[in-house]
Design a protein around this nucleic acid. Structure first.
Lengths: 213, 213
DNA sequence: GCTAGTGGTGTATAATTTACACTACTAAAA
DNA sequence: TTTTAGTAGTGTAAATTATACACCACTAGC
């Protein structure tokens, strides 16, 4: 045991999961069944286990509490205001995740538009706001945006996703030039089928999307 | 006491303090006198006290362990690998600080060029590398660089500082245009005296530099 | 008064970003 | 079978932003 003359804080990981569905950026919340804030919405979170890396806690919590397997996962920041948990000193390391598709989530979990987040427990409003800001900012200078779409995707699909995140329309031709500019995205040769419109070319990134930091 | 069936980790704050002196970007390390890593260089750090906000821990640690009062202070990230401290599970929230001038530091503290950092305790090499990367990146898109110079400064002085951080020469005329472009920097009307060269105009920012995130 | 050292200034070119409109393909309805 | 709705795909010109570049002038010290 280390020399440590102070009561130790509890350490949790809270996770912000983003997805885009029907042109809406959404965040996943779970309904708390335990005190404090029982019945409130909250970010999926949990205590850090002994010998568990923080990122592993994030991944575990997402699986256990939300039924979600993540694609992109990165640390957002650590929130440690002394009064953020009414019970005790709890320091929370926040991670944010991006997923694509519509996985079956836990029955206590629900997606909310980021424009319509209900009141949340603890300081989770603040954490969510910070995450949205970070997400929007990183969309433009990292490859993070590809985590919202499957491995194989069309450019209109990707554009609609980005527009949902940024909440702003993007020019189609300029968007395509921008995406293709650095050679990270290449055509598969396949095209979509179906829909009352021409088939769209399917693309993929030459490297899987990893945490870009 | 909160329901928490796991041994609690200890939580520390480690701080990376940057300054620029003689066109060199430097970081402050202290020599450890306690085990583990006694005698090694390490980042100034300390345990988070009960009811102490994380940022307050950072400021306190800098004062107590390094004798430094900071100007700019922001959270870098949290490092929690289970084996990063050989004694026990210790999760460290890292902050980075920027100061200007040459304050009297603690006798155990010493400045090192970022190009010549000695081996350090724990995972502090990794934390320092992360901080340098973040600093360089944020220099260009935030006002963070002004924290390296006093409230009143000359443009050549500011340019030399930025060149030290980026380790690259900058064009004088373009640098001045860039700095003045957004109207955040204004001339005081005063000029420097002394030096075998023309007096330089003194400038200041219209807003004090705060944490820009 | 001469010299070393450096503060201060503008313009032309290149690179990047932005604005913008039509054709053609598919599915579904008439 | 024809028509219609919906949307994929494509290029260029203009504006903005970033880059490259050289000389004069002021001060201190010799």
């Amino acid at each position: 045991m280390v020399e440590y003359p102070f009561p130790r804080p509890a350490v949790t990981v809270d996770t912000i999961v983003f997805r885009v569905t029907d042109a809406v950026l959404e965040v996943l919340l779970i309904r708390r069944d335990a005190s404090p804030f029982a019945g409130s919405w909250a970010l999926p979170g949990g205590f850090v286990h002994e010998d568990e890396p923080l990122e592993a806690t994030a991944a575990r919590v997402l699986g256990e509490k939300a039924g979600v397997t993540t694609y992109h996962l990165e640390q957002l920041g650590t929130f440690g205001a002394p009064d953020r948990d009414p019970r005790d000193r709890v320091i929370s390391v926040a991670y944010f995740a991006i997923i694509n598709g519509d996985p079956a989530v836990d029955k206590n979990a629900e997606w909310f538009s980021v424009d319509d987040v209900p009141p949340t427990a603890f300081d989770h409003d603040h954490i969510i706001a910070t995450a949205i800001q970070r997400l929007r900012s990183k969309l433009t200078y990292t490859r993070i945006g590809f985590a919202f779409v499957p491995d194989v995707f069309t450019l209109p699909q990707l554009q609609r996703t980005w527009e949902a995140v940024l909440k702003a329309p993007l020019d189609k031709r300029n968007f395509r030039k921008m995406v293709m500019a650095d050679g990270q995205v290449i055509a598969t040769g396949e095209k979509t089928r179906g829909g009352a419109h021409p088939p769209a070319m399917l693309y993929r990134t030459i490297q899987p999307i990893r945490e870009t930091q």
